[in-house]
Design a protein around this nucleic acid. Structure first.
Lengths: 337, 337
DNA sequence: TTGAAAGCGCTAACAA
DNA sequence: TTGTTAGCGCTTTCAA
């Protein structure tokens, strides 16, 4: 007995179509999933009947025999972090266009959950796109050896990846601040295990060095708006007139705190964020930030992954680097004299 | 030949465990998925060996025979709408706690996509939670008859649902504005086919009527920050000193435009939003808004759905109503004289 | 180009 | 309590 009150209509299978058309089930299967290997007329007939009976292929049966699921997992550390908006949209569109199912997974900032989920899901997905992985280099490479994987915002040897050209972006931000007369620039550091954080810091050091300026870093601060208070307080305690924050979330948190403490932005301190996430254009003051084509990154990652899944050629292990650019808004201004 | 270079380790199946323990495959199956119906010692042995071989059950094979997938779909009209953050978190946690997989689906504001996706997914999910459905009453009820379904933020007869008590919340907002001396309050309407929009409008009318005040509505405006400009311009054109916007997205868009046009908030116009979404506390000025326990709504929805899936009793077709409350921030103030 | 038949990994009768 | 057996719906050899 079915314990739900839902109408469980008898599902249409290829056998029903086989019966209705007089062809064998195997022919129906071929006609539906491998149209090239069947007589055109036969295929048309079968497809027509399939539609008529509103046949829906059983993905489980298909996956069981073929191993393919037409599903790609997209792992992000926190679905509700606006930074991922663009990535989610990009992967979503590109996957849908290719007829794939988008399985969005929230790894809750845990590297362990990443690999655990992925191995549990192994048979349910054809591949995965991993954003901002918290995994160690070694573990990530191991994972990539077990299933088709593309990393976003993380570069590891042996793993295909799409990264944003933070170095050039951070350099732009530094030039911008320097051109405004700032001489003491501080980097508000994000989580220590963040690859992007290290990349940003290093390029800031390099950019400042080119101008003969020293830079310091404060933190690390957990990536989140909450950390903004501590970050702002720490910053006020220095002689710096400008800072570049690991990301917009942190920067916005700082703006709130600076306002609370009566420190004028940009009159006393200039703040630059990273990511141009949702909210950067309506916080107060609006945030100068480093924008990256994250939606495009999602699309590129999907393309790379699908190429990998479809091509007979071995993966090329390449990585794509996408350009970033600075968006100047109200939170930066001339250095106070 | 495998065309990927990934190591396809031979997957461990229950047959391997059967062989290793000497039990029949069916016993292994029972021990693993129905522990009560097997000798304790047997179970222990089997579980131990399963772990040793790092066995992972094949979800497709399981779904194929049993029809159960331990997966629940959560449909939202737009994953990147901050309003859903709490809902996503709530459902995520509750589902994970119950050992279910969370399949997050973006329906891109299309009712058609909702039902289409759901019927395609029918065999891949045990049930669904549908937020803010765009479907007609009839279609939603039909869908609910076909699979276990809980609607959030939408009330339809014959469909279990979790809704937020907007009426009481909007009344609070109205009282707040009236107590500040506002006499001309306008409702900035959201999409016409939105159930919540109608509910909010009706309760505002009722609340105002209790004070003998008339209210007008402007719009409808598409729910999005972009619509804020048109909404703000329309509002300025009236004699209203206060407005309640369909949601925070719209309200924040309005704030931006009002600032552009040099209209003081709250000095000249007070603005109230709905939802207390991400950003409402850092926009400028910070937004007075109606907060709803949306995360709790997600948890409750999952509980209702799981009860439905597990219990032998027929669904009770009940609906839960969660309280809302007003959060007063900077965007509301005394009416100008 | 098409059909027959085997079997993917698991669950669920039924029997013992 | 456990084993035997028969599929779930599909894909994929292998033959015709």
């Amino acid at each position: 007995m079915d314990n739900r009150d839902n109408v469980q209509r008898p599902r249409v299978t290829i056998n029903d179509i086989a019966e209705a058309t007089g062809f064998a089930a195997s022919t129906v299967s071929r006609a539906l999933s491998r149209p090239g290997r069947v007589n055109a007329a036969t295929r048309e007939r079968i497809v027509a009947v399939a539609r008529e009976l509103s046949y829906v292929p059983n993905t489980h049966a298909r996956a069981l025999t073929s191993g393919r699921t037409e599903t790609v997992a997209v792992l992000v550390s926190d679905v509700t972090n606006p930074f991922y908006f663009g990535l989610i949209r990009g992967t979503q569109h590109q996957l849908k266009a290719a007829g794939y199912t988008h399985l969005l997974i929230d790894t809750e900032n845990s590297g362990e959950l990443e690999s655990h989920t992925l191995s549990k899901m192994r048979q349910s997905i054809d591949g995965a796109i991993m954003a901002t992985s918290r995994l160690s280099r070694r573990l990530l490479a191991e994972l990539a050896a077990e299933l088709p994987l593309v990393a976003v915002n993380r570069m590891v040897r042996g793993v295909e990846s799409v990264v944003l050209d933070s170095p050039s972006g951070v350099a732009q931000a530094a030039e911008h601040l320097i051109s405004l007369g700032h001489r003491e620039i501080v980097y508000m550091s994000g989580p220590q295990n963040s690859w992007a954080n290290e990349a940003r810091w290093r390029s800031l050091v390099a950019a400042a060095a080119r101008h003969g300026l020293p830079v310091h870093r404060l933190g690390p601060f957990p990536a989140g708006r909450m950390s903004g208070s501590a970050a702002a307080d720490a910053l006020i305690n220095t002689r710096a007139t400008a800072c570049i924050a690991f990301n917009d979330l942190l920067a916005i948190g700082m703006l709130t705190r600076l306002r609370e403490r009566g420190v004028g932005v940009p009159d006393e301190i200039s703040v630059v964020g990273c990511d141009d996430m949702f909210g950067a254009d309506f916080c107060y003051p609006t945030l100068t930030t480093l924008a990256a084509p994250i939606e495009q990154a999602g699309r590129v990652a999907v393309s790379m992954l699908l190429a990998r899944l479809h091509d007979s050629a071995p993966a090329t292990r390449q990585s794509a680097v996408l350009p970033t650019h600075l968006i100047v808004r109200e939170s930066t201004g001339p250095a106070p004299r």
